[in-house]
């Protein structure tokens, strides 16, 4: 909108107005202001494009480089198979360790989230939320070091269960944060209605509040699952990986898809590096599928 300077009385034009101060050097130069506006609009558009280029490039390259070696043998042989190595042990390893981790970290996170949202007083809840924020910022490799210094050293040695616990440490604050936020959204009137019927508080939480928040809780748990599925660092010193199939033996080392990608990428042989890309396809497919399904439903409401 142009400012009609011709309508301003002569005397008033001499004094610098608030608008003069705010609009800076180009005030009065309508053309320049319009140009700056358009340029900045384009610059911010360009920035947005720069942000999504890596996503497209990563997904594109992973597909191009990994598809040729993504064969049936790759999906059905263990990496220790000398004739045609594959990633079955890594796929099955992730499919075992991550659910166990979710069972530990997810259930504990849910309980802690319930406590923070339903029982803690305002101060306690604020303090708890703050500590969860801090915990979310702790680098995941330190979860690996933590489990190494406890479980691995004194009890289990390098094992799948140690890997699961390390992943659970990563998932724990994620599930707390998600469940706490979702439970806070449940209207108080629903709780009051239940309590007014004489139903005990715990029963109200378990049978009324949690079912109402079910969809949101599931979202948080699925996102924690996806996050755990892609984590490598906590497994480096705990599950360590294994070349042979390990089904059900949680007391020995176990392979995992992200570990497979990392370890293969460091091998000098090109065929192994190619398999790292193929494993990355499987990994990306699972992680992105979960994210698309879970986030896709709620994205519209959050952008409002």
């Amino acid at each position: 909108m142009a400012v009609r300077t011709d309508l301003v009385p002569d005397g008033a034009a001499q004094r610098p107005s608030a608008a003069d101060r705010l609009l800076g050097p180009h005030r009065g130069n309508e053309r320049m202001r319009a140009v700056v506006d358009v340029v900045m609009r384009l610059v911010s558009l360009a920035a947005a494009i720069v942000v999504i280029v890596p996503l497209v490039a990563i997904v594109g390259y992973v597909l191009v480089k990994g598809l040729p070696t993504l064969t049936l043998e790759f999906l059905t042989h263990a990496s220790g198979n000398t004739e045609s190595p594959g990633a079955l042990n890594a796929i099955l390893g992730s499919l075992q360790m991550v659910p166990v981790a979710l069972l530990i970290g997810g259930s504990l996170g849910l309980l802690a989230g319930i406590y923070l949202a339903e029982y803690a007083g305002p101060r306690m809840a604020a303090g708890g939320t703050f500590l969860v924020d801090v915990l979310l910022g702790v680098p995941s490799i330190l979860a690996g070091v933590l489990v190494y210094a406890t479980l691995v050293t004194y009890w289990t040695g390098s094992s799948a269960i140690a890997g699961s616990v390390a992943l659970a440490v990563v998932m724990f604050p994620i599930v707390i944060r998600a469940s706490e936020e979702v439970l806070r959204l449940v209207p108080g009137s629903i709780r009051e209605a239940s309590l007014a019927l004489g139903i005990a508080r715990w029963r109200t939480v378990v049978s009324v509040v949690v079912p109402v928040a079910r969809a949101g809780l599931l979202t948080g748990i699925m996102l924690a699952f996806a996050r755990g599925f892609g984590e490598t660092a906590p497994l480096l010193f705990t599950a360590r990986g294994s070349e042979s199939l390990n089904v059900g033996d949680f007391s020995s080392p176990m392979a995992a898809l992200p570990l497979f990608v990392y370890q293969n990428s460091r091998l000098p042989d090109r065929t192994f590096v190619a398999q790292a890309w193929s494993a990355a396809i499987v990994l990306l497919a699972i992680v992105l599928a979960i994210n698309v399904i879970v986030r896709g439903r709620s994205v519209g409401s959050r952008v409002e």
């Binding site: 890596p54 996503l55 490039a57 984590e231 490598t232 990994l283 994210n291």
Partner: peptide
């Protein structure tokens, strides 16, 4: 916004490989 959130979900090891 959705696509940018997906970028955050890509596992670190895949970004490293790329």
């Amino acid at each position: 916004t959705f696509i940018i959130e997906l970028l955050a979900a890509i596992p670190s090891v895949v970004i490293g490989l790329w």
